[in-house]
Design a protein around this nucleic acid. Structure first.
Lengths: 265, 265
DNA sequence: ATGCATTTGTTCGTATGTATC
DNA sequence: AGATACATACGAACAAATGCA
């Protein structure tokens, strides 16, 4: 009186791949979310109801829920009689999948730097066009905090540095570009920052960074998108050109010079 | 003599969230892959060995494997005594997570168009700098096929259109930018193409598209990155400016005019 | 090429901690 | 506070598929 004996994959005639039991559920839920039939805050049927609805075993339902959970689409909690919760859509899965690609060196350092040059440049450009007064004040405060933290330590300074970029990205008003920039920044940091901070003088680096941020801030405040964009590209080139091979450097040069005007005025 | 009785979540004292059994395995494998201890082609221990190794039930191991499968990190096949296979790293998960965000309207149409403008512009720029002769020939052939397919139907033409962009992205030599561009293109198509093709004349659209591709091709062949970049931005603006509100259009204008030179020469 | 041992895919059963009413 | 329903987790069974001798 134990051990099941249903008809698991029904016996396939040819070699058509049997759609796995759990996959059917995953697909169904994902389609419903994409179609807007299921929105954040809604509830999925409980596991037992899903068992009945899809005609599969409990384990299969649970596998499906784990997959949906890993995509941050739902969250189930023990004892909750309302069923698994549909979560607000998050940018985290995208961030994590990118991060994995950089961890495995599928995406290389030159690619990341190129990408950041493109993205940061346009972020600055858009921020100059759209920034509000409040956002400007936030940036100014951030720079002040950065200046103070210089004497404290590289840790705090680094955090403020990242925050400055996020403030600009927010002012630019494009979540897509923001996330891509975030990921590229994190990835580059992961790949080479340690080498830099070990090899060089912290104070000099921080001073340079501070000066650069000040210049970018001024350009954005003046609504000079052209200048803000060029500053981003030049800054990145100065920072990272030594870390890539000749061919990649040539491409970086092209990105600095050609995009945003032929000459540095 | 059936029914387990281990210590499920060990009885948490406070409200610290119990790390789920399957999550430990997922984390372990992901860390190993990121650290390079596990490479594509390698095998994971079989399910039963994982049961022994992590001291959990088979269901938990299977949940972990399903999650890893959904991230395209491993693939297990029934009956294979060698254990789950570690897959080559794929850009698909990143593509899918982006696609979900666009499906749910978390990313909006103006954001996507802006993003594409930035990405396509730099893709063209880099392609002009790096393209090889062989890649040029492939583009030429693609345009020829596009011209022929015009009389056949919009379906075939559309596919050739996408392929042209992919050829350029490949010539640009940056996988990161390539994937981002792909996703943005697909998403925009998903959101508005139908509206366009229903409302307007197919032939006129295809002719315009063809002319545009020809111009881009010439610029890339001439290694004129500046021109190729500008063509991408102007083309996108002409195509999509009518589909966004005034504020977004202003930003698009800024992207067209400021990046890549003040004036259209 | 055939058979055999092993592995996965799936199902069912059971015990326990937990959240809601 | 208790009853109820839930999710978490463990274990065992069987069918189908695979790899290897």
């Amino acid at each position: 009186m134990s051990g099941g004996s249903r008809l698991p994959p029904v016996t396939r005639s040819t070699k058509d791949q049997a759609p796995r039991a759990y996959q059917r559920i995953v697909d169904h839920v994902e389609a419903a979310v994409a179609a807007g039939e299921l929105s954040p805050g809604d509830r999925l049927p409980s596991e037992r109801e899903l068992v009945a609805k899809f005609g599969v075993a409990r384990s299969s339902v649970r596998e499906a829920l784990r997959v949906l959970e890993s995509k941050e689409l739902v969250r189930s909690r023990p004892g909750d009689p309302r069923g698994p919760l549909v979560l607000p859509f998050s940018l985290e899965p995208m961030r994590r999948s990118m991060a994995m690609l950089t961890s495995t060196r599928t995406l290389t350092l030159p690619e990341l730097i190129q990408f950041r040059m493109v993205v940061d440049a346009s972020t600055n450009l858009m921020a100059a066009a759209r920034r509000t007064g409040a956002q400007l004040i936030a940036m100014e405060r951030n720079i002040a905090r950065m200046r103070e933290s210089m004497t404290i330590g590289y840790e705090v300074f680094g955090r403020a540095d990242l925050e400055f970029h996020e403030l600009i990205a927010e002012a630019a008003g494009n979540k897509f570009i923001q996330v891509c920039g975030d990921v590229a920044r994190e990835a580059i940091l992961e790949l080479i920052t340690r080498r830099i901070v070990d090899a060089e003088d912290h104070t000099a680096l921080m001073l340079r960074s501070l000066r650069h941020h000040g210049a970018v801030f001024t350009a954005i405040a003046d609504r000079d998108g052209h200048r803000a964009s060029r500053l981003a590209r030049e800054g990145l080139y100065d920072h990272y050109a030594d870390h890539v091979d000749d061919e990649a450097r040539t491409v970086l040069e092209a990105l600095v010079l050609e995009v945003g005007g032929r000459l540095p005025r």
